[in-house]
């Protein structure tokens, strides 16, 4: 498997995962609107949390769609992978900070494990990025 194929698989996998997760978040928001609807999970959500869950879901659907486009045309959409790597690093940073400062101690090591996984994916996006195409 060459680097370009691996990059396309990476973009496709992360893109589909993000899109499905986004749809799940959006569905969770609508489920929370039902009478007595309380979303399961380690973090208790109030109405504010459900609102931001829906916002995050919409953003993930758009982000995932961009990554799926990058999987189809990796050379012309290579900046999507770079931006994704940057965003993954930022997400890992806030998870490490959240874990370190203790406000989310009830989550245990979930934040650390998530941060480690995101850093691994960011590293893959950095090193598998295809070279730029010549314009004109």
């Amino acid at each position: 498997m060459n680097a370009l194929t691996a990059y396309r698989i990476l973009c496709g996998f992360v893109g589909v995962t993000f899109a499905l997760s986004g749809l799940g978040c959006l569905g969770g928001f609508f489920a929370s609107l039902a009478p007595g609807g309380e979303l399961p999970g380690p973090i208790p959500l109030g109405v504010g949390g459900a609102y931001f869950l829906a916002f995050t879901g919409c953003a993930l659907v758009g982000w995932g769609g961009s990554l799926i486009g990058a999987a189809r045309q990796p050379r012309t959409h290579r900046t999507v992978g770079t931006a994704t790597a940057f965003a993954l690093v930022l997400m890992a940073m806030y998870r490490i900070a959240a874990w370190f400062f203790g406000d989310y101690a009830f989550l245990g090591n979930i934040l650390r494990v998530e941060a480690g996984g995101m850093l691994l994916f960011a590293l893959a996006f950095v090193w598998l990025r295809p070279p730029a195409v010549q314009e004109g």
Partner: peptide
Amino acid sequence: ATAVIALLFALDLGLPYTPLGRRGP
């Protein structure tokens, strides 16, 4: 970018557990 990611990896694995957690349970 690799250096930044490696630094974050080191922080993720090496930081002690909530040493500054004044608000944690």
